[in-house]
């Protein structure tokens, strides 16, 4: 058993290294309480999402919001930065918008603040946001 593991480690050091790193990251997250914080953030986000948005988030780790001022659609992906993308009517990415609430917040909190800002005060949110280029998925490009 041990010999097999050792042999695997020698043959595929990158795989073992990655597994070891993943375990270290998981242990670190458990010890620092990061998992709890992320969980609380996600729970708060889910409480404030509409049923449609909640279903999108559960299925894809993203959800769409409609800007209150322009009617444009934005996709908010799971993340803490550069995670908002304006979506065209053809469901293609148009431009990214980077804006976040100040401070060390978890992803769920960041996403919720972005949702509320776009749905309730879109112009104010975009006035501080930095645009960034996005590429359409390969299957959509001409």
């Amino acid at each position: 058993m041990f010999a097999n593991k050792l042999l695997t480690a020698i043959r595929m050091p990158w795989t073992v290294g990655r597994a070891f790193r993943d375990r270290c990251v998981a242990l670190s997250r458990a010890l620092t309480g990061e998992d709890d914080r992320e969980g609380r953030g996600t729970m708060l986000l889910r409480e404030w999402l509409s049923p449609e948005q909640c279903a999108q988030f559960d299925a894809n780790k993203w959800f769409d919001v409609i800007g209150c001022d322009t009617g444009k659609r934005y996709r908010i992906r799971y993340g803490r930065a550069a995670n908002v993308v304006e979506i065209s009517e053809e469901d293609c990415p148009v431009v990214g918008w980077c804006f976040v609430p100040r401070g060390p917040l978890v992803a769920g909190d960041v996403m919720l603040a972005q949702k509320i800002a776009l749905e309730s005060d879109e112009h104010a949110a975009l006035s501080v946001a930095q645009p960034f280029p996005v590429q359409a998925p390969l299957h959509i490009r001409a």
């Binding site: 976040v100 100040r102 919720l112 946001a129």
Partner: peptide, 10 residues
């Protein structure tokens, strides 16, 4: 009532 911090550009 939910409070989120001031938004800033990334």
């Amino acid at each position: 009532t939910l409070f989120y911090p001031r938004l800033v550009g990334g």
